[in-house]
Amino acid sequence: MHKKHARLALMLLPLIAASAHADQWADIQSKQTLGCGVYSDVPPFSSPSPSTRQLEGMDVDLCAALAKHLGVKLELKPLSGEARIAEVKMGRVDVVVANLAYTKSRGQQIQFSDPYYVAKEVLVVKAPLADKPKAYFEGKRISATKGSTSEQSIRMAKATPVTFQDTGSAYLAVQQNKVLGVVTNTMSAKKLVSQAKAGGVELGITAEPMALEPISVGMKLEQPVLLDKVNQALYAMDAAGEIDQIWNKWIGPQTEYNLVREERVQKLAEMKFEALE
């Protein structure tokens, strides 16, 4: 019996060690550093400063505020959009703050904090159609970039997606009357409307979003302590007005993006929205 117990203890040792190592919050505290993944070059979220070549942007400032509230130093880790999920899963970054939207498939791979804002997929149409409800476009041809969440949102709205390699080509299809509108994120949509107006074309954005995308901090699965710490920090940042300050600096009403922050940090589990795949 004693030998069996000894063998069992030896078998359990690697599991115990792995479990201890898996506590990412303990690791962060031990190294006193938060490894925060951000875009390598996607302004205004994170891109090299023209003067200093240091990364700057909305997500960089959010990482700095998050690290401050967690009581640790910040280590920025630039990565591509495609690598955001993989880098978190493999533990190469502690968190990712890179305009990361919650989707069903991503939610099976990593865990998400409570969102600090809600991005919207919106429909850009010629001005006379801007006051039409979303239901009006059911069965109609709508353009988007291929493989994007914009394409998914068109299908969710029961419209017919016509896809292109880039937003410019998708918009050209609107100009050529091949589709009734183009779906993209709010920031890109406002740019399209502004650029079209400068060229003498009147466009509008329909009032009802095609889809909602909660933007959150991404972390490795099964890290409840880290998730709780990040959520606590986000609510504290919100209450102190820090998120508003960062927002207004980079994408607020006085910037070229002219976006108003409408939502506060809120519980992801209590949000009422149809998640994209």
Score class of each variant (00 low, 15 high):
His2Met: 04
His5Tyr: 15
His5Gln: 01
Leu12His: 02
Leu15Glu: 07
Leu15Met: 15
Ile16Glu: 03
Ala20Asn: 06
Asp23Arg: 02
Asp27Trp: 07
Ile28Met: 06
Gln29Trp: 06
Gln29Ile: 13
Ser30Gln: 15
Gln32Phe: 06
Gln32Tyr: 07
Gly37Met: 12
Gly37Ala: 13
Asp41Gln: 03
Ser46Ile: 04
Ser47Asp: 12
Ser49Gln: 05
Ser49Ile: 07
Ser51Glu: 09
Thr52Gln: 05
Arg53Phe: 12
Glu56Trp: 09
Glu56His: 13
Gly57Tyr: 00
Asp59Met: 02
Asp61Cys: 01
Asp61Met: 01
Leu62His: 00
Cys63Ser: 05
Ala64Arg: 15
Ala65Arg: 08
His69Thr: 14
Gly71Arg: 09
Gly71Asp: 14
Leu74Met: 04
Lys77Cys: 02
Pro78Gln: 14
Ser80Asn: 13
Ser80Met: 14
Gly81Gln: 04
Gly81Trp: 00
Ala83Phe: 06
Ala83Leu: 09
Arg84Val: 14
Ile85Val: 15
Ala86Ser: 11
Val93Pro: 00
Ala98Leu: 07
Leu100Asn: 09
Ala101Ile: 01
Thr103Leu: 03
Thr103Ala: 03
Arg106Asp: 05
Gly107Glu: 14
Gln108Met: 10
Phe112Ser: 07
Phe112Ile: 01
Tyr116Trp: 12
Ala119Met: 11
Leu123Val: 11
Lys126Ala: 14
Ala127Tyr: 01
Leu129Met: 11
Lys132Gln: 15
Pro133Ser: 08
Pro133Thr: 13
Ala135Thr: 07
Tyr136Phe: 09
Glu138His: 02
Gly139Val: 00
Thr145Asn: 12
Thr145Lys: 11
Thr149Glu: 11
Thr149Met: 07
Ser150Ala: 04
Gln152Glu: 13
Ser153His: 02
Ser153Ile: 12
Arg155Ser: 11
Met156Asn: 11
Lys158Asn: 15
Lys158His: 09
Thr160Trp: 08
Val162Leu: 12
Phe164Met: 02
Phe164Lys: 02
Ala170Lys: 04
Gln175Arg: 05
Gln176Gly: 00
Ala189His: 10
Lys190Asn: 01
Lys190Gln: 03
Lys191Trp: 03
Lys191Cys: 00
Val193Leu: 10
Gln195Leu: 12
Ala196Val: 05
Gly199Thr: 05
Gly200Val: 08
Val201Arg: 02
Glu202Met: 13
Leu203Thr: 04
Leu203His: 09
Ile205Cys: 06
Thr206Asn: 01
Glu208Tyr: 00
Met210Gly: 14
Met210Trp: 06
Met219Thr: 12
Lys220Phe: 13
Val225Cys: 04
Asp228Gly: 04
Leu234Arg: 00
Met237Pro: 03
Asp238Phe: 05
Ala239Tyr: 06
Ala239Cys: 05
Ile243Ala: 08
Trp250Leu: 12
Gly252Tyr: 10
Pro253Leu: 10
Gln254Leu: 09
Gln254Asp: 15
Asn258Phe: 01
Lys267Val: 14
Glu270Leu: 14
Glu270Asp: 14
Met271Ala: 04
Lys272Leu: 12
Phe273Ser: 05
Glu274Tyr: 05
Ala275Ile: 09
Leu276Tyr: 06
Leu276Thr: 02
Glu277Leu: 06
